[in-house]
């Protein structure tokens, strides 16, 4: 049972990291807390569903269209909404949350709810690993999240745009002196975050079904993981995903599933009590020292 629990805890960790990485990327670079993130996740899921089931186009096409559409939508949201309230954190949160709310409630209003709204698993097979059955989709999530973290690392360390992301994240005004355009980079950061929400949806939704309420759930989980990790730190997201991922699964197995929520909340409170800026809240600490 222990190996099984550990395996499922790892998968849970991967799911949480996948959900949080996009939100974290946007926040880490431009400081925008995109509260429409959960809605973007759901939007992409319905987008893929609609393209496959209503337009009868192939699944891979649907995936690409949904990711690109989400990225464009994110960029437009930055250009036409966020740009006007840039630098006022509360207004940014209200604006993005409002947009997210509108999207999610619209889907509820039109009654797009039910078991027929789901995305197919990639491969319908299960494997026995050390006596525990795991389906292919969960293994795909596990493998892909590792690949994604590596790709993000490579992107931010070896491409001009990725390096500009890190420059803006560390010291915006200095980044400007090298010809980096901060509004363009911020646009990209929101856009990439929205694209990652689509990617997360495409991997995770097949485990359940598409429902507007999921959007809120994803936003809360992403927020929790990012706050524990120390907003904006990729290492922090990974560490926090491990903490919450393992805490949830172990509580589930050894204490009871009705305690799951409480234990994760307790984990959040504990981390924040010991280290208010989150596990990897390095930047903050530097500021505090100065």
């Amino acid at each position: 049972m222990l190996t099984g629990t550990i395996l499922y805890a790892l998968i849970n960790t991967a799911i949480l990291a996948l959900m949080a990485l996009g939100f974290n990327l946007t926040f880490g670079i431009s400081g925008v807390a995109n509260f429409a993130y959960g809605a973007f996740y759901i939007l992409a899921a319905y987008g893929i569903w609609g393209i496959v089931n209503l337009l009868h186009l192939p699944y891979p096409v649907a995936i690409i269209v949904a990711i690109v559409a989400n990225m464009i939508f994110g960029a437009l949201m930055y250009r036409f909404v966020l740009l006007r309230v840039r630098g006022q954190a509360l207004s940014e949160v209200i604006a993005t949350f409002g947009i997210g709310l509108a999207i999610l409630e619209l889907f509820s209003y039109f009654g797009w709810v039910g078991f027929e709204y789901t995305l197919p698993v990639f491969v319908d097979r299960s494997f026995a690993i050390a006596g525990t059955y795991v389906d292919f989709q969960r293994l795909a999530i596990l493998g892909f999240s590792v690949i994604l973290v590596f790709c993000l690392w490579w992107f931010t360390h070896h491409t001009a745009t990725g390096l500009a992301f890190r420059g803006i994240a560390q010291d915006e005004r200095t980044a400007l002196t090298f010809g980096i355009n901060s509004d363009w980079i911020a646009t990209l950061s929101v856009s990439f975050g929205a694209g990652l929400a689509a990617v997360a949806a495409l991997f995770i939704i097949p485990l359940g079904s598409i429902a507007p309420g999921e959007g809120y759930d994803v936003l809360i989980k992403a927020l929790a993981v990012c706050i524990i990790g120390g907003l904006g730190s990729t290492g922090g997201v990974i560490a926090a995903a491990f903490i919450v991922g393992f805490a949830e699964r172990f509580t589930d197995t050894y204490i009871g599933s009705h305690w799951t929520m409480i234990v994760s909340l307790a984990a959040i409170l504990l981390v924040l009590t010991i280290k208010p800026s989150g596990l990897f809240g390095k930047q903050k600490e530097l500021e505090e020292r100065i």
Partner: peptide
């Protein structure tokens, strides 16, 4: 080159050059 030599503190020396070389 701004006053008080602002550099990207979290990045290595080489990486600072890479970020500066955006163009």
């Amino acid at each position: 080159s701004r006053e008080r030599h602002p550099v990207f503190q979290e990045s290595s020396v080489v990486e600072n050059f890479k970020i500066a070389g955006y163009l």
